[in-house]
Design a protein around this nucleic acid. Structure first.
Length: 295
DNA sequence: ATGCAGGGACGAT
DNA sequence: ATCGTCCCTGCA
């Protein structure tokens, strides 16, 4: 730990993942290490570097399925790119950032991570989640390094709110405890949400204390296979305002902060415009907006 | 140094 | 339907 976040996970020459969606990844030497639920995963370039790479998981069972699931190797990326490339800007970004991919996170980790993500920034989110993992996760040794798995719902639910606050969560502690409780008690079944459509699954997530439209959309896109979800953060809002006047609000006040009503309107428009893979388009726009930024 | 931004959402007007 | 507030950190 203690390393500055990378702007992207360079998986191999043809594959890149924005770190904005996966907080607990870090690069050490020629390898990327990531916390993936109750696993630690490693992705490294082969030493004889002809573009080859290898994936490992600890524990080592089901490695192939884990890799395929995590990096969405089951997606038909060609036809996805083709479809979102109906938009000229996304088309050019898809060419420039060829290899950028979405990850499929563990649903619980994704939900709990984004509950911690409101009104803050990525370095701070990494710090909070790292502290939570260290305190409530299980230590796993890989390559002589110590990592911590992501805490279980019940562990987070059992924790006192004050303990969660001491991990740097601030007022988000209450929301995390609530979300963890919903999962731990079975009131919220994330696996069920995977089988629902976007609207129904979103409605369920919005019931949770501390989960608004933005965070719900992130969880839907990054872990529940709703590729039509289109999360709008301040950067995406700016991208829309400067490049998509037809999608932005007529109101000139529309710049970065969206009211609930504005969010729903802009999101609906973007989802209709970009289509069933709007979420992939969102990732190209987000990645583009983040270029040159420190994290 | 004081203010503000940073992957927002809640609760009171 | 808007608006102040919430915890915390880095940076201008």
């Amino acid at each position: 730990m203690g390393r500055q976040p990378q702007s992207l996970v360079q998986l191999d020459p043809g594959m890149t993942v924005s770190s904005g969606q996966a907080f607990l990844w870090e690069k050490m030497g020629r390898s990327w290490y990531g916390v993936h639920g109750s696993r630690i995963v490693r992705f490294s370039k082969k030493r004889d570097g002809d573009g080859g790479f290898e994936f490992a998981s600890f524990p080592e069972d089901d490695v192939v399925a884990v890799e395929s699931g995590l990096f969405r190797l089951d997606d038909d990326i060609g036809s996805i790119i083709a479809e979102i490339s109906r938009d000229p800007l996304v088309c050019s970004l898809a060419a420039r950032y060829a290899g950028l991919r979405l990850m499929r996170q563990e649903p619980e980790q994704c939900l709990f991570s984004f509950v911690c993500a409101s009104n803050t920034n990525i370095p701070m989110i990494r710090r909070m989640l790292g502290a939570l993992a260290k305190k409530y996760g299980k230590a796993v040794s890989v390559d002589g390094l110590t990592f911590h798995t992501f805490p279980s719902a019940s562990a987070l639910h059992r924790a006192e709110e004050s303990e969660l606050r001491s991990c740097g969560l601030g007022y988000r502690a209450k929301a995390l405890k609530a979300a963890a409780g919903a999962v731990a008690t079975g009131a919220l079944n994330l696996n069920l949400l995977k089988k629902m459509g976007y609207d129904d699954a979103r409605k369920e997530l919005l019931q949770l204390y501390g989960v608004g439209p933005k965070i719900a959309d992130c969880v839907l896109l990054f872990s529940l296979d709703k590729l039509d979800a289109f999360p709008i953060d301040v950067w995406i809002a700016r991208a829309l305002a400067s490049n998509y006047h037809q999608l932005a609000l007529q109101d000139a006040k529309f710049s970065s902060k969206l009211t609930l009503r504005q969010y729903e309107a802009v999101s609906k428009g973007a989802r209709e415009y970009f289509g069933r893979y709007a979420g992939y388009a969102q990732q190209f726009l987000y990645y583009h907006m983040r270029q040159g930024k420190k994290w």
